[in-house]
Amino acid sequence: MIPIALQVLINLFIGFLWMFLQDDWSALSFLSGYLVGLVVLFVMRKFFSSQYYLFTVQAVINLFLLFIYQLFASSIVVIQRIIKPKLDIKPGIVAFETDLERDIEVTLLAALITLTPGSVVVEISPDNKVLYIHAMDIPELSDGVFLSKLKFEEAIRKVTGS
């Protein structure tokens, strides 16, 4: 994550430099300098060890949209279960393996899975390999949880660039 912060810092520096060269202390000239900086960084993107930071911003937005979609889809399933006159749920704990390795990635995945209704991460194995997820209705939801886990993993990988 450090190289991405470095790119943003360079971009801010170019923005301020542009503003001082214009001799015009206004937000507008700073913004135009920032845009010039974006172009400069895009041209020089091969020289940085990390990906161009606007791609990371785009990946974060994609992850957010995916999360909102999953939030609504699984909420509807859970609400249907709750308001059924006869409660027929088959809860249980399933183990899912994950390919993500770094701490921040596993933390993000566990937080997103817990935020979507119908699945709560109960335990993570000490080597960060296996997530134990409590799902509300195993036969129907476990496939859904598995699919959403795959999508989340892919989106998280794009954000962290690994």
Binding site: G92, I93, V94
Partner: peptide, 30 residues
């Protein structure tokens, strides 16, 4: 999510039974 996870985890570790009709528990073996 953090508080939900911590509540569930501590409940499991202090031995709160899962409800009747729970179909599987892969954490027990672990």
């Amino acid at each position: 999510p953090v508080s939900t996870h911590v509540i569930c985890r501590s409940a499991y570790h202090s031995g709160v039974e899962m409800a009747e009709g729970s179909v599987q528990d892969e954490l027990k073996q672990f």
